[in-house]
Design a protein around this nucleic acid. Sequence first.
DNA 1: AATGCTGATACCTGAAAGGTATCGACTTAT
DNA 2: ATAAGTCGATACCTTTCAGGTATCAGCATT
Lengths: 301, 301
Amino acid sequence: MEFRHLRYFLALAEELNFNRAAARLHISQPPLTRQIQQLEQELGVELFLRTSKGVELTAAGTMFREEAGRLVALAERATERTRLAGEGKLGRLDVGIFGSAVLNVIPRMILNFRRLYPEVTVVLHNMNKIEQIEALREGRITIGFNRVLPPAPDIVVETVLKEKLIVAINRNHELSHAREIAISDLSGQPMIIFPSAPRPSFADQVYTMCHGAGFAPQVVQEVGDAVTAAALVSSGFGICVMPESAISLQLPQVIFRRLAWPHPTIDLDCLYHRNDQSPILNAFLEIVRGFRAPEAGAEAG
Amino acid sequence: MEFRHLRYFLALAEELNFNRAAARLHISQPPLTRQIQQLEQELGVELFLRTSKGVELTAAGTMFREEAGRLVALAERATERTRLAGEGKLGRLDVGIFGSAVLNVIPRMILNFRRLYPEVTVVLHNMNKIEQIEALREGRITIGFNRVLPPAPDIVVETVLKEKLIVAINRNHELSHAREIAISDLSGQPMIIFPSAPRPSFADQVYTMCHGAGFAPQVVQEVGDAVTAAALVSSGFGICVMPESAISLQLPQVIFRRLAWPHPTIDLDCLYHRNDQSPILNAFLEIVRGFRAPEAGAEAG
DNA sequence: AATGCTGATACCTGAAAGGTATCGACTTAT
DNA sequence: ATAAGTCGATACCTTTCAGGTATCAGCATT
């Protein structure tokens, strides 16, 4: 059975006359007769009752008309949905995110994407950078977001934006009166560092920054994520260097101060598989790239 | 697009290798390549990503795989349902019935039918004999049940069974002591007659019977149906001749007595369109004919 | 550099869809 | 009653196109 049989059948079921149906199909009457006979033979059922004045549908024919109509409609739907999927306008986007650092930028990007591509289902998966790379390779996610990523030959890493660093301080802390804090001011201060794993991470970047300023940070606690770190700041454990987006965290007693010149930054990167040419990924990447600060000069290729 | 394209596509989507897929389809590789190219061209979308070591599905291809699978499954369902409809095992049977007289036999026939053909939806339509004939001609019902039917060239009438006549009597009535009632006993009794329309009807048969016994019935009331007639009997209006199946009517004060020899009967007929060869109708007719009393000799052909 | 995969292409063959002419059955109009 | 005009079915020819064989180009492994 081919779609041709369905098209011919439906035309005949509407016209109830071989000649008129054939004319409508732009073929002559004999081939139509033959195709209908074939169809009936394959189904093992008479679909039409031939009378002296045209044809009429049998009970089986009536049933087949319903089914054939459904099939043709579904076929049209199939081509339409496939075309849309080819344009990235229909489908599913699995995004790997990491817990705390994505408090601001990623939700905004996803909201923008969903406004432009409302038929794409966006699914978020919370996982760390190691898990994200693994999931990208296995196709469980299409794109991931993270910081301080190790290079891999099959994974493309693009810097989404460079966030300035800020310092979370307890309101009663001696540094709370300054509008900005110099890196050297952190020397000797009890510091909270995150994340503890996996390495390399934001924590390493803070270490490097301090050593670059000529001192070793006095780490009182390593924690897993920014929310926990902020909670410790709130209870007076110490101070904590964070990416700017952590400013969304609202905890009692916690205030944020910028780090002064040279305004150190941390990259937020996105990562995806080098061979992935999925149109949905490309559509999403365009949105992501639109978020990249226009003044940013240096970019990871 | 033809089903061939779907079959080939699905084979390739599973094997992800043109040669293996072609082998599975019992064709050689070049025609498979060509058919897939045709499909992609018609959809305007690349379905497979050709690599040096086989192929993989694109996003559009993944979408099309889902849709193609649905289509193939629906096609199988379509052939199966059409075959079943051809055997009368699937579909719909619209039955015209008339209100009161069908208290017993028709429900039993329909229950039997539904046990044998559980996938056929039986729909009952309450209509009088004129409406039934009209509905048969327009295809709104497939079979009707009624009594005392006028002949029509395009409608076949078959006697389903001959019901004996009974008399509904108030418990306090003088005739209630007899086990059987002779037709002549009805002479001079106040009688309720039904139905008042449409003619010819059961009412006419009662008239004829009385006149044949040598008297004119003393009609105190004409009513529309047996239930109303029985209600009048219950309140002492008079007596009423009814078909035997009315015995199912349970009303206070109403008792039933047989009419004595020569045991007059009334036919319950079914009617259907002469040209209707629907397998469901034939299946139902077989059940109906099985209900016909085996001793009944004379039948309407 | 050679071999062995991959899918794509060129060209031929054969099956089958489509076209023309005509048939037999039936209805309708004269 | 019979001739003309329907209807769908059939016989036979033409054309299209799916399928087959041989071969190619690209890439990976050896």
